Simulated scan of single mutants.
Amino acid sequence: MIDIDELNADASVTAEGIAERILAWAKHRNLFDKVPLEEGIEEDQNELRIGSTAFQAQAAEQILRKRSINLIGFSEPEKKIVIFTHTKVTKGDEKALPFSISGYKIEYMQGGIAQVKGNPPPPQRPLPFYQRKGFYACGSSIYPAHCTGAGTFGLIVVDANGQLYGLTNNHVSGACNNAMPGLPILAPGPLDATETACDPFTIGRHSRLLPINDGIPENIQIDDNWDASIFALSDPARVTSFQGDKYDTPPNVSDPQPGMRVRKVGRTTALTSGVIVAQSASPVPVAYTVNEYGVKKNVWFKKVFIVVGDDGVPFSRSGDSGSLVVARNAAGEEVAVGLVFAGNEQRGISFILPLADILQRLDVHIVSGHNV
């Protein structure tokens, strides 16, 4: 019997620890939606007892089985656990569900499968790119030359030799693991090279990527999955580190934290804002359907944060992949925290990866103040 109330005095008890126990209990009770999430969760054979009733109550278990859990997240700063369900928890359901555990809040949100899709919709502003003072800006459309598609130019980075690169997702400029070194990356992307667009040009050539390998956590090293790619800038004099026409790329990077207010500039939805509601308590399966590359697979990611846009407006949509996510730290300084890489438009949620880990793995640093 696991009684979290008995662990309350233990300093090692955390929101993440409680969320992991709920996950294991939910798997044992078969409360998950029909997605591969449970394949990444270690089952706890013990009963989960939280207080005298809580999740042990039969009514609560029946409700969560009916609504189907598809993700559980946590917020350490807010002492909160977030349970995402396939169908919305109703007012009637709330009467039988717990809303706190040992001083930790529980919230219920309607969630959905994390998805990466190609064939992005038209941009929500007149043009899918920004030209600021004649320079092509971050937050604009890019894509490899050999496919008709579009994603987002996230930011400019530099290596130890002073070489400047553009950074975005692997599934944007890395051709879903298939890009050969030197592959031209066009700006705007071929899908956006219309009669009203600026003349397309080779903004850079593919250099390196972090992979997106399918396979369940038991079979592959999902720690290697980061969905990021860099391309060497062909002419740094043609681009700027400014994010659209809104603000410059912050010079400093920080870890994303649930509760942070965030914003981004992207190819499809331009400037949007929202809040990081949780960090996933378990590896997250992401459904990739990128017809441009003939890719259809599930890819698992270990460290994922969930963002909800303000006022019911999606934080991101297809085509915004690769967008830089920024926030303000405790000192009020603007910092770069992540990259948009997936979403669920039906549920209005976006998924981001921590930027600091990506920069470290690629051995590059942020460039700010370039042609601003």
Rank of each mutant, 00 (worst) to 15 (best):
Q221A: 14
D214W: 13
I216V: 11
D214L: 12
Q221P: 07
K246S: 06
F242D: 01
P217H: 06
E218L: 02
A237L: 14
A237C: 02
P250K: 00
T249Q: 04
I230A: 03
N213I: 00
D245G: 01
S234R: 06
R238I: 04
A228V: 02
N219Q: 12
S234I: 02
L210T: 00
P211L: 06
F231R: 05
A232Y: 04
N225D: 11
P211S: 06
T249E: 10
S234M: 13
K246L: 05
I216K: 07
D214Q: 12
P250G: 00
N225M: 13
L210P: 15
I222M: 10
G244E: 11
D245S: 10
A237W: 01
A228Y: 03
V239M: 01
R238W: 03
P251A: 11
T249N: 09
D214I: 02
I216F: 09
W226M: 13
Q243C: 07
L209G: 00
R238F: 08
A228N: 03
F231E: 08
A228R: 05
F231D: 06
I230R: 01
I216D: 07
S241Y: 08
G215L: 00
D235S: 14
P251C: 03
L209W: 06
I222H: 14
T240W: 13
G215H: 03
G244R: 02
A232Q: 07
A232W: 02
D227P: 05
K246W: 14
I216G: 04
V239C: 04
D235F: 07
S241C: 07
L210W: 10
Q221G: 06
I222G: 00
I212S: 12
L233E: 05
T240D: 04
E218K: 15
F242Q: 13
D223M: 06
D224S: 14
V239W: 04
D235Q: 14
P250H: 02
V239G: 10
S229K: 06
T249I: 03
F231Y: 15
P251F: 15
N219G: 04
D245R: 04
D245C: 02
D235I: 08
A228E: 12
D223N: 13
I222W: 09
Y247G: 03
D224N: 15
I220G: 11
